[in-house]
Simulated scan of single mutants.
Amino acid sequence: MATPSTPVDFICPGESPEPTESTAAATPGSTESPADHYAENHGFRVPLPLHGQNRCDGLTVVGRVKDALEPLRRRGDFAPDSVRDALSGLGYSAEKVQAYQNGSAGAGFLIDIGVSPWCVEGTMNSGSTTADAFGGYPDGSNCEPPSGGH
């Protein structure tokens, strides 16, 4: 019987060869107090990182999303409808794109890609546009952060 292997990451096209810290690397380790179960009890809310070719595909999608939103950002157009239209213009179904006001001068978005990478989320404001691709959540839900737990 084959044992599962550790996912392999490699430098993606257009990516700097400098190592980046992955979401998994930010997971608390042995410095955690045995009585502190916060991280354990809320692990279901930590997005699954992408690895290998999926990570490269995710970086490509993130680049396309940022490119599509940059004209809006430069104009100061943070209206959720404008953000949704720009992202739908990339070919994502309008039902799979959420856009919302993020503060008084910004917007947030979440795209359920439906294939790997599954999800892209981010924000934009007058200073920048951020986006991140991830593989959903450990509970198997869609791209929405799960609620509940124990």
Score class of each variant (00 low, 15 high):
residue 56 C to R: 00
residue 79 A to I: 10
residue 64 R to Y: 14
residue 101 Q to H: 11
residue 57 D to P: 00
residue 48 L to P: 00
residue 88 S to A: 15
residue 84 R to Y: 01
residue 48 L to H: 00
residue 46 V to D: 14
residue 81 D to Q: 11
residue 88 S to V: 03
residue 73 R to F: 09
residue 73 R to A: 07
residue 64 R to C: 02
residue 55 R to E: 01
residue 103 G to L: 00
residue 67 D to F: 02
residue 70 E to P: 08
residue 51 H to S: 12
residue 45 R to K: 13
residue 70 E to S: 14
residue 61 V to F: 05
residue 64 R to K: 15
residue 87 L to Y: 07
residue 72 L to P: 15
residue 94 A to Y: 05
residue 98 Q to P: 00
residue 102 N to Q: 06
residue 82 S to N: 05
residue 99 A to T: 01
residue 92 Y to F: 15
residue 64 R to S: 08
residue 75 R to C: 12
residue 43 G to R: 13
residue 50 L to H: 09
residue 63 G to H: 09
residue 103 G to S: 09
residue 51 H to T: 00
residue 68 A to V: 08
residue 91 G to P: 08
residue 74 R to H: 11
residue 106 G to S: 05
residue 78 F to D: 03
residue 84 R to D: 13
residue 71 P to T: 14
residue 76 G to L: 10
residue 96 K to G: 01
residue 112 D to P: 00
residue 57 D to S: 13
residue 95 E to D: 15
residue 109 F to L: 10
residue 82 S to T: 13
residue 99 A to L: 08
residue 93 S to M: 04
residue 79 A to P: 01
residue 86 A to L: 10
residue 78 F to V: 05
residue 91 G to I: 11
residue 58 G to W: 00
residue 77 D to P: 04
residue 68 A to E: 05
residue 101 Q to V: 15
residue 108 G to S: 04
residue 100 Y to C: 02
residue 106 G to A: 08
residue 84 R to F: 03
residue 52 G to A: 15
residue 103 G to Y: 03
residue 47 P to T: 05
residue 81 D to W: 02
residue 103 G to P: 03
residue 109 F to P: 07
residue 78 F to G: 01
residue 53 Q to T: 07
residue 73 R to I: 11
residue 101 Q to M: 14
residue 56 C to A: 04
residue 55 R to Y: 07
residue 71 P to Q: 05
residue 99 A to K: 01
residue 65 V to S: 06
residue 71 P to E: 07
residue 75 R to F: 01
residue 70 E to W: 06
residue 44 F to L: 07
residue 44 F to I: 08
residue 65 V to R: 00
residue 84 R to P: 03
residue 93 S to H: 05
residue 62 V to Q: 10
residue 80 P to D: 03
residue 80 P to G: 12
residue 66 K to G: 04
residue 63 G to R: 14
residue 78 F to R: 03
residue 51 H to I: 02
residue 52 G to R: 00
residue 59 L to M: 14
residue 82 S to Q: 05
residue 91 G to F: 04
residue 65 V to K: 06
residue 72 L to H: 12
residue 87 L to R: 11
residue 87 L to V: 07
residue 84 R to E: 15
residue 57 D to W: 01
residue 50 L to R: 00
residue 70 E to R: 15
residue 56 C to T: 00
residue 83 V to P: 04
residue 105 A to K: 00
residue 73 R to L: 09
residue 48 L to F: 01
residue 92 Y to M: 02
residue 112 D to Q: 15
